[in-house]
């Protein structure tokens, strides 16, 4: 936040515009295919809520490229958070929806922004409670650094150096398509 004539104003920088987001997702889709030699045994699991929208976007790309529909699931991490005491009030709980077994599957976990890594830790615990996947890979649209845990992403849309006080927002339109990524100071 900067102060301008006594008024607090947010200074926003667009990091990825609509086309930038599209290109990044297309590249990630190709990388997923390359790493897994196709989509055999691959499932996408988005982290609520932004990650779920992005997982659906990735599934569309994979369908366009390979002609195969990859199953998409959603995981809600609220019940796996490690900071329950820190919240004055509890967050609403979303639904975990995995319409497929993850046992033996190659799970590509999808989130919008990778920051401390705590969300990913919680999501991995949530997944492990549902079965034993053969591997978990991580795809994120933006990696902004500042990890608290030893976690790294396998597929990254854009690396963005930030300070801890800044905020990264991924915007979606009414149909849940990503529109742009903004850095808020």
């Amino acid at each position: 936040m900067i102060e301008f004539q006594g008024v607090q104003m947010a200074e926003n920088t667009v990091i990825l515009d609509g086309n930038g987001v599209k290109r990044a997702l297309t590249r990630i889709a190709h990388e997923v295919l390359e790493r897994n030699k196709g989509v055999d045994g691959v499932v996408l699991v988005g982290i609520r809520t932004g990650g779920v929208h992005l997982a659906h976007e990735l599934a569309c790309r994979l369908l366009e490229i390979e002609g195969v529909e990859v199953p998409v699931g959603a995981v809600d991490i609220t019940m796996y958070r490690d900071d329950i005491k820190g919240h004055a009030e509890h967050l609403p709980v979303g639904k975990t929806e995995l319409p497929f077994g993850i046992e033996g599957k190659k799970v590509v976990l999808v989130d919008d922004v990778l920051f401390t890594g705590r969300t990913i830790r919680a999501a991995m615990d949530a997944l492990m409670d549902q079965g034993r996947p053969s591997c978990i890979q991580l795809a994120v649209l933006v990696d902004r650094g500042h990890r608290d845990l030893p976690i790294r992403a396998d597929f990254v849309g854009r690396n963005v150096p930030t300070s801890r006080s800044e905020n990264i927002a991924v915007d979606f339109d009414a149909d849940n398509h990503p529109t742009e990524v903004i850095l808020q100071k």
């Binding site: 019940m79 796996y80 329950i84 709980v93 979303g94 975990t96 409670d129 549902q130």
Partner: peptide, 16 residues
């Protein structure tokens, strides 16, 4: 409504 899903899992436990 969201927590109902946990009750249908194989491992019916979360660490909350």
């Amino acid at each position: 409504d969201s927590l109902n899903e946990i009750n249908s899992r194989d491992i019916k436990k979360v660490p909350t």
